[in-house]
Simulated assay, not measured.
Amino acid sequence: MKNLFGILSLFIVTVLYGQNPIEVTHLSSTDFNVDMIVAIDNFGTFYYTKDNSLHKQTKDGKIINYSNYQLGDISSANAFNPLKINLFYQDFNQVIILDNRLAEIFKIDFNTLQPYKNVTHIATGFDNTLWLFNVDLQRLELYDYKTNKTRFTAVPVQSLVLDLKSDYNYCWLLTEKYLYQYNYFGSMISKIENTGFTEIAKNNGNLVLKKEDALYFKAENENIISALNLPKLLINQFLLTNETLYIYDSEKLHKYQLKIN
């Protein structure tokens, strides 16, 4: 198995850059004042943080929230699975799992685990798992928090980790040198040279990548990265829900429709 991972780690996918930008249609711009947008689902439910609390706002305007001030600032949040929302508090090296009512259902304190895990990035896995980056060992791990077992460990990476995203089928690890993609078994299925991308957003296997002040699109199972033809915007955050792209500039939430053939 180790030899297999060693062979896979040498496999680098060559990507092409599309000559024609992908057109987008502006749908709306709405005043919005939050610290971080976590997710926007297909039913119009917003998950966001404000004043170090997680808020869930449904389409009819109903809002519930969760806060845990004793753990410091929320470093990241993931609502991909609305029944198992995770909040990562990096300063305290802990994760809180919430249900769809934002009630605590599990608490993970990496400081008390054996062996100890020093975590910098978290993403949702399938079942009762989390993808996490263990900075002391410089490797991606798939951790089962119910059984306290590590199901998978990747080959250590040799460059700074910039972002980590996942869905039920895949996990993407963006480093300064490469973008790695793993399946839910932990096998690396692609390794793409990073040419300056710093953040990623995903939906249904499709990716949007940020480079400087521009966004790019990569479709699932394709090796072509195309620029998105967007107006000049301050891009503090961006999210992808199906073919809808959201861009947040800290004052307004802009909504665009991607025209993907």
Rank of each mutant, 00 (worst) to 15 (best):
T198V: 13
S67R: 14
H55G: 04
E212R: 09
N183G: 05
V161S: 02
K210I: 03
N223K: 13
I200T: 01
F5M: 12
N183R: 08
L253Y: 11
K50R: 09
T147M: 14
N236L: 08
M188Q: 15
E243T: 14
L140D: 01
D99Y: 01
F197V: 02
F185E: 11
G186R: 12
K146C: 04
I64Q: 11
L240E: 04
L233S: 07
L113W: 07
T150H: 08
T129Y: 05
A39R: 15
Y182E: 01
K50E: 07
Y248M: 05
F197L: 01
D167F: 07
P21D: 09
L83R: 13
R151H: 12
F106Y: 08
K232N: 09
L164G: 01
N194Y: 11
I108V: 12
L113I: 14
D91G: 02
Y69P: 08
F238V: 14
N118T: 11
S166K: 00
K252G: 06
L245N: 07
Q257A: 08
S75Q: 09
P115C: 03
V15S: 01
I37N: 06
Q90I: 06
K191W: 05
V13N: 14
Y47E: 00
T124H: 00
H121E: 05
D213K: 12
F11G: 05
A219L: 12
P21F: 12
L240G: 12
S226G: 06
N33K: 12
I7C: 05
Q90W: 02
D109F: 06
Q138R: 15
L83Y: 13
L233Y: 06
S75M: 05
K149T: 15
I7V: 08
T45K: 09
N236R: 09
Y184D: 00
T30F: 08
L179K: 03
K62C: 09
T30P: 05
D91N: 13
L239E: 02
E104V: 15
I189F: 03
T58A: 10
A201Q: 06
Y178M: 10
L215R: 05
